[in-house]
Design a protein around this nucleic acid. Sequence first.
DNA 1: TTCATTTTTTAACATTTGTAAAATTTGTTC
DNA 2: GAACAAATTTTACAAATGTTAAAAAATGAA
Lengths: 201, 201
Amino acid sequence: MLPKAPIQLPQETEIETILDTIYALPNQSKAKILHFITEVRYPKGHILLKAGTVEQSIYFIKKGIVRAYSCSSDNDELTFWFGKEGQAIISMKSYVENRQGYENIELLEDCELYHLNSENLRQLFEEDIFIANWGRKFAEQELIRTEERLIQRQFKNASERYKDLLSGQPDLIRRIQLGHIASYLGITQVSLSRIRAEIKI
Amino acid sequence: MLPKAPIQLPQETEIETILDTIYALPNQSKAKILHFITEVRYPKGHILLKAGTVEQSIYFIKKGIVRAYSCSSDNDELTFWFGKEGQAIISMKSYVENRQGYENIELLEDCELYHLNSENLRQLFEEDIFIANWGRKFAEQELIRTEERLIQRQFKNASERYKDLLSGQPDLIRRIQLGHIASYLGITQVSLSRIRAEIKI
DNA sequence: TTCATTTTTTAACATTTGTAAAATTTGTTC
DNA sequence: GAACAAATTTTACAAATGTTAAAAAATGAA
């Protein structure tokens, strides 16, 4: 076997960096958010958010990697989002419409998270224009990412989508098992194996 | 041939209704937006926004129906969004990141539109917290719709997706030619014809 | 290490969807 | 209504992906 390449360890991402990366906030506004934030840890395998519940919790990932998945009526799982250091974990339907969410969030590694109660954030949206615009930017950025994925799913075949992920986010493929990756790409694990075999040749 | 069922004509949607449906605004904030809005009309077939340009214009649809599409490197077209009365037309990439958009917008009917310059809206986001939250709500709602489509694309086969569209938005199928509908559903027109033939039996 | 478990790959075959071209229907214009 | 153009359906075949089952490989715990 070949010697393994040195693996770049994922860096912890501090909450201030996470907030500012979405949209630069004045210190005073940032402090208002930080006031409500607590740090928590959960082990690999923990289910952080459950589908069918109205979630009050928002998390930001300091360290670790997670997946969002939904279940079909036949109980098939579909992974439609991965989150890693620096990203926000939100049950969109709960956050936006205060209704039951459609996603489960499972931790794929031991995680260190920042916790924020969505009711507190909602309050801040009402009273601080910088935070309101921060929230707007967050949704807009997620929207573009999601729309681009929807488009790419159609323009590119499974093999191209895998290669794009491999070059764009190689750490995901290193850190996440291939069954989840296949689901995220919209194919079966068997298909993904075929694609990987093809590329090796 | 059977006598045709009476066709329900699409209603015009006034700009105040459009704005309030996204998120109820105080009259003063609404007036600030209305101040920058003008009414325009274009004929069927007109290309309202072009991919590869940084668009300054935002539109709201008073009357008519439009599609957003992207072109692949092989010049295949992909329709990924339909807009009708009450909806906002935005080049997301231009609006969010001030960068070249990936979408073309084509009018599928003669349209009456409300026009708003995005620079003016950006200004309002900075100075009016209600408008900032209105912008946040808009992005959040679009995000949920897009994410749900991404998930449905995987959980349901083409036939189910067509039936869902048929029951959920029958007017789209009545008003839009099937080639565009097929593209929107993520299949070819031939496949859509097969599905329609199957359903009739 | 060794064993048990989980993950990944491989194989054979079925099904779905795509491609290209022709036939049909629909709509428009004169 | 005739003639033309555009949209839709049908057909035959090809390619991609799914399904099921089994084998192989990798991983993790004792």
